[in-house]
Design a protein around this nucleic acid. Structure first.
Lengths: 364, 364
DNA sequence: AAAAAGTGTGCAAACGTTCCCAAAAACGTT
DNA sequence: AACGTTTTTGGGAACGTTTGCACACTTTTT
């Protein structure tokens, strides 16, 4: 019995394989041959190096144009050991905040000739780690990441960082990790929102928030507390509810609402996009009769808040700008002449969008 | 006077360049050397080829594991002339429909070891073309695309296709382009929505829709017409408003609303996600007094419809599934043994989510 | 006992670039 | 006229893989 020496795979020729034969994309070599030059000269001419005479450059450029030459970025990446691409990790692109951040990132990246690869963690630590490692193995030049709500252990990021992968955190940033970070002014945003609730006469203000471990959870809690304290309202821990999964599971939210309502809050301050919309939904689903009696203020970048009923006061983060700034910092790290040692944490102000009284109250 | 022979660039050493020296990622060569084997053997062992003895395989695998070997996908891409990545073009990731499609795409792609690169056209033809060409030059193995609302000329896609780039269209598909396509059952979705409006007593039903050139615009118009006709309601062309930019500019929507209202519609059927939310916003902004008097039914995949006021009846597309099916078709093309000649257009059913009476009417 | 077949491994070329190093050409200077 | 300089070009290795082919060794067949 002999082993199968010529297994099927050998005859398995895919369409790509057939096509690549005539997917005739001209290379530097072709140009060189056609023009009777060497590949080095052509390469340099195309990259507009000083060593090449104007004449030759013109010649090469014209011919390249004629045959519609496109440099092969893969080959370039291999040679230069970098990919001109940056990785992005967010929990969910369907989240308005993150999609706006991504738009900001792209606006800068494309300008600087980087391209971006987006990955979603879906608020799962496992998924996050998997994606980051996948990206790293695709040799991205840098990473922009907002941690998932589950993430506690960031040693895997430390590892990559110490191996030379530039990383910039945004929105959800770790505490003990020395690199650039870009966040919204969470304290002030929360303070303003809570104060707004107080000024409109609310006294029992609950706080619904994300996983306790997230950086912005802490900051937002502080803002909430500070506002209460300014108006001499006692802080009651039982009015604060944490959602481990960031509102990814509706059960989690309904549970939180269920626990909160018996405490008779007349206002709720909610600290994240997904939680805000999720909470209103849960409220409407489980206790429609009180949904319109509780004033709500929350972080959200939804551009549809004006449509919501019950209406709410929202804290809008400068998402686009956060993306831009983070990208600028990242690219500066990537292209820095020496390892960076001075890191900055940029804090961008939020905007409070007050509920429109005329609309908001009409249906109360 | 001599030219500057040693320009600054020569001394411009970036951090990446420094780092890649010690970004010690072990290669096949290293493994080979360490184990006293040839690179070919190692390569084959890692790819689990039949020619290599079990013994050697074990050895190699163990060592690779030990030094945490990661294959360099760039090198592999260069050699194999494919990148194991597929490009996606949508108009806007912030759009619920598209972000759900993307989730569907990813769910399949990652399983099959492809990774995805997302680009946004922002409903601009120019941007779309630019992005596609950028992706193509990054040697994606295939393309999934929903055309922008501006797009008329798809010759540039034909070009790439004829050069061997597999393309699958979804949602917005061209007519005269022979390839796989995946769409929702737009006719039925529109019919159902329009019928729903009629059955709830509306008789003057306007239709707000996307650019006239889009495939699904036509199909949805037909569904709308068919429902009218079934109930012997005369079709009036002046009740149909097209939005060239798909609602990207609020002025466009406000203009449409302004033109529509004098015709005293008691119902509006809207044919796209962005238009639906945009129209309600425009209605509320320009004519809040009538906003709640007009029944609205529209395509949208927003998971927040329940929060909207005025509430609406929505047509939900099976976005996730559309993404999955499109990806499966694309990968089948990429990996096909011979050029495909039989193409299919998959049509997936939509779901009508009726407005909740108890909520919807409470504030009328 | 020799030939044939089966099995495991290695050599070397290729993928399309970039860039170091040298060589050739053009130009001045003595 | 011979030699330095400056400017322009080319040769060829390298980046990390994959793979056709050749080779050597082992086993089976005749």
């Amino acid at each position: 019995m002999s082993r199968f020496r010529t297994p099927k795979e050998i005859f398995f020729v895919t369409w790509v394989q057939v096509l690549k034969m005539r997917f005739e994309t001209s290379t530097i070599k072709d140009i060189a041959k056609a023009l009777g030059l060497s590949t080095s000269t052509v390469s340099r001419a195309l990259r507009d190096r000083y060593e090449i005479s104007e004449e030759t450059k013109k010649l090469v450029l014209a011919y390249a144009e004629k045959v519609n030459y496109r440099a092969n970025p893969i080959a370039r990446s291999l040679k230069e050991r970098r990919s001109y691409s940056i990785g992005i990790i967010v929990s969910e692109i369907a989240n308005n905040f993150f999609s706006q951040v991504i738009n900001g990132i792209e606006s800068i990246a494309y300008d600087r000739d980087y391209h971006v690869i987006i990955s979603q963690s879906h608020e799962s630590y496992k998924q996050e780690k998997l994606n980051v490692e996948h990206l790293a193995s695709r040799s991205i030049d840098g990473l922009l990441i907002a941690l998932s709500s589950e993430t506690q252990d960031i040693d895997y990021l430390r590892d990559l960082y110490s191996k030379g992968l530039p990383i910039v955190f945004f929105d959800r940033v770790p505490e003990n990790f020395e690199t650039h970070k870009v966040i919204a002014n969470n304290f002030k945003g929360s303070f303003d929102a809570t104060e707004h609730l107080i000024l409109s006469g609310k006294r029992v203000i609950a706080h619904l928030t994300n996983s306790e471990t997230l950086s912005n959870t802490k900051e937002r809690l502080e803002g909430y507390k500070a506002a209460l304290s300014k108006y001499h309202i006692e802080f009651k821990p039982e009015l604060v509810k944490y959602c481990q999964h960031g509102g990814m599971h509706s059960a989690e939210l309904e549970q939180a609402v269920k626990e909160l309502l018996p405490l008779k809050p007349d206002g709720i301050f909610i600290s994240s996009d997904r939680l805000t919309t999720g909470c209103i939904l849960a409220l409407k689903n489980t206790n429609p009769e009180v949904a319109h009696k509780i004033a709500i203020a929350g972080f959200t970048n939804s551009n549809l808040v004006e449509l919501f009923s019950p209406s709410l006061t929202s804290v809008k983060q400068p998402a686009f700008e956060i993306g831009q700034v983070a990208t600028e910092l990242l690219i500066s790290m990537i292209e820095a002449k020496r390892p960076i040692t001075e890191f900055e944490t940029r804090v961008l102000d939020t905007e409070l969008v007050r509920m429109k009284k005329n609309l908001g109250n009409r249906y109360l």
